[in-house]
Design a protein around this nucleic acid. Structure first.
Lengths: 153, 153
DNA sequence: TATAATCCCGACTAATTTAGTCAAGTATTG
DNA sequence: CAATACTTGACTAAATTAGTCGGGATTATA
């Protein structure tokens, strides 16, 4: 699993939406400015996150985005799978995007058995962290002294 | 960490060399046939593994390749790092290929802290497995009944 | 109802990476 | 010397990545 720039931007954007979760929406422009993401690129990314059902949008003057589900219901594994495809390092150990490889017998492939372990290790971490957890970490890392309004991601 | 075709071929080739470790060399052609790897491509890959010091070659009629060090001294982490670059999903948590990312404060970046855990999980597996371990797995997976000469990878 | 703000959509591009191929050369053994 | 193998470097086609861009659709509000 390698996170592309696009993927990193998406996570950062979802984290902003998580931190501002509520009935109100957040503008693309604000997310882009705060996170230093190219605005046009972010539009594209949020559009994708929208059609995947992670966020909903509101158009027009007071428009913007918010999370569709609660932040505790969205795992990083889900997000990254949608953005980058398989979490597994090789297709033949991917559960969600399985693809046969060229070795003669998968059941007896030693490399595969190692990659299986790598996959499980990755998924173990990523399934266990939701956007809400991320938000908790932001608060923890910042410490209790700072102004919660200008949090840093 | 995503394993490219090239990377997978390299692992398979090294595993063959591990299984045949000894003073004798193995021909590219034999590795390519046994593992179903395009011969010309494998030439390129082995050349790379040679300049990286994983294997040594012998030219001429009875030429071929063998491992430079013992199979127990070569970890999958080393191999993959050389072939694919960082094991970490993002540059800012890579120990060997660190690269600063665009977030304002790495020390307080929640996403980074998760990716750190992912990296540690990946490295934990891959540092712990050597080519010799891979060979053991091949033998284990095959069971004791089969002919050790036509092992499958 | 006009208008400005905002999201929406699809096409486009440039740079990089990936997966190979190929030709001609060099060393070694029999 | 001839056949066999590795060596080197250039080349290519396709896919991916990281954006950019123009213009259209929607909506709050004055």
């Amino acid at each position: 699993m390698k996170l592309s720039q696009r993927g990193e931007y998406a996570l950062r954007a979802l984290l902003v939406l998580g931190m501002n979760h509520g009935p109100a929406v957040v503008r693309i422009r604000d997310i882009a400015q705060q996170q230093n993401i190219p605005r046009r690129f972010l539009e594209q990314i949020l559009n994708d996150l929208k059609s995947a059902g992670f966020v909903v949008s509101k158009r027009g003057v007071a428009g913007g985005y918010r999370l569709q589900r609660g932040p505790e219901e969205i795992s990083l594994a889900d997000i990254i799978r949608h953005l980058e495809g398989p979490l597994a390092p090789v297709g033949c150990v991917s559960v969600n995007y399985y693809q046969r490889c060229s070795c003669p017998d998968e059941g007896k492939c030693a490399i595969r058995s190692v990659m299986q372990e790598v996959r499980d290790a990755i998924v173990g971490v990523l399934e266990g962290v939701s956007v809400a957890h991320l938000c908790d970490r932001v608060r923890d890392l910042q410490g209790p002294l700072e102004n919660p309004l200008d949090y840093i991601i």
